[in-house]
Design a protein around this nucleic acid. Sequence first.
RNA 1: GCCCCGGUAGCUCAGUUGGAUAGAGCGUCGCCCUUCUAAGGCGAAUGUCAUGGGUUCGAAUCCCUUCCGGGGUACCA
Length: 596
Amino acid sequence: MSIETIIQQAAIKAVKTLYQADVNSKQVQVQNTRKEVSGDITIVVFPFLRLSKKSPELTAEDLGNYLKEKIDIVDSFNVIKGFLNLDINKNYWFNILKDVFSNPDFGTKVANDDSDVVMIEYSSPNTNKPLHLGHIRNNLLGYSISEIVKANGKKVVKTNIVNDRGIHICKSMYAWQQWGNGETPESSGLKGDHLVGKYYVEFDKHYKAEIAELIENGLEKESAENQAPSIIATRELLLKWEAKDEDTIQLWKTMNGWVYAGFDVTYKTLGVDFDKIYYESDTYLIGRDEVLRGLAEKTFYQKEDSSVWVDLSGEGLDQKILLRSDGTSVYITQDIGTAKMRFNDYPISKMVYVVGNEQNYHFQVLAKLLDKLGYSWGKDLYHFSYGMVELPSGKMKSREGTVVDADDLVEGMVKVARDMSIELGKLDSLSGKELEDTFRMIALGALKYFILKVDPRKNMMFNPEESIDFNGNTGPFIQYTYARIQSILRKAADRNVSILADLNMDSMEPKEKELLKRLSLFPAAVQEAGDNYSPAVVASYCYDLVKEFNQFYHDHTILGETDANIMNFRLVLASAVGSVIKKAMSLLGIEMPQRM
RNA sequence: GCCCCGGUAGCUCAGUUGGAUAGAGCGUCGCCCUUCUAAGGCGAAUGUCAUGGGUUCGAAUCCCUUCCGGGGUACCA
């Protein structure tokens, strides 16, 4: 039971005894005491004034006296206006420290056979272009949320739906056929996904030129967009693909193969992975069958041009197309099929889609569609809607080439990490792979923390002109603190100092107690992050912990301490902080170096 | 037009059930390495919490107005 809960329940009893009145836990506001004020935990007494019919100060005095007498972890108290600040007995804090030190599962819950299965879809790339910074945010969030949900005692299935078919894929295929001259990753030395992306951009260039020409010849914009030769050819290609034309399928397989090889490299670099991968090419027909079933059951309707629609105007939404007039599927068709397949494959109790907020409307429609098709789980799907990454110049657009490429960004950061490490000269004891791994760890730590510390729901700004920081509230700052702790623990081991969970001390320094308080908040942070699907909560917690540790580290020596009990206590404290840092950062997918 | 989301220091961001003097980092100006790693610590300056109103003992937080920005809005994904 957390300290907040203990105090809260005690306060409810106190009010009952003192004022013969019932209050619920919501009315008892318990918060951490502000740093400038003495005390550990604070009760806000304003809500009780009506019951006590006394001044805030006297009410707080009443409560304080009661708690001091009845609750053994409350040592003493002070009152400032309507705030009752309680001092908690040191043994309470010592017990927390012992728990952190000796319990490897401190702060997290472990899943068992009966735990809920949560399926988390993330990444979901199109196979017509390489990944960019927006995808990085998606991948990092998806991975981190998976780890956080796991830490809250759920079974997690990480999944990826690869959008490997559709008109957009045909665009790069067509462009490659027309202007590719047989170029391959081998012949050009280009990473597969970058090669295919090049032809996607190429398509757009030609398509735009054709539209401009048609408009010049007197066509309206809309008809020009529909009659440009490139788009007509691309539509034919999609029809041939859906008809399983052999050459078209072969080209599709070849080009997608290039892209997958490229994606694998990027995924590995980012340290993300999946338990189950679905391909739209396998699921879209199931979706189409579902749509046709809905049509037969008159859930949906058909227009004269034979396109299929759903009318959601009764639910406050619009009409939505489900199959085009030429019979091919649209984006939402495959999502229906994929959902059906997944629920057949796994005993899913919650389905989470990590997809950008530009698709909020899409997921509202999807939930209602699944519901209409008779799937009870449809309306419970959760769209984890995250914000866009914006550049100073505006939104990133793959077609126009105004993106921050994922591979380039990571490589650039590794270079910065390498240069900086060499300049600081701290890694001279390492060499070869170990050294290179540390550079990558630091670079990825900086990038991941930069992305994940921001509230996922909000749009965020990235300025390519300014490199991502390595000082201050950053991943490397946290890694650095961890490395310092490991250095101390190594030195302690060298001197044969054993670290005991047995703590014998009369009092603590303020910085020591502050650190203990921070440690005690870890379980609440993990839970809050899980409840809100927010890696930023973990990042923020970890930063506060690390900042607190650095102050302690600055003010107090550990190995230089002459009192053996105090030295042992500080070693236990440092070790515990180290393990919490490591665990918290692992929830963000950030690794901790032994040295840096 | 309609719907959704956002606006906090020069910049990037915290601030979740309404609580004490609104906080960090970067940048700026100072200070601290004969002492466990200075990717660190300490101090200074910087705010009409977009705007106007309302509810409340108390509002950055809840409700309404206006302004600004982003996204979506029937055959892109």
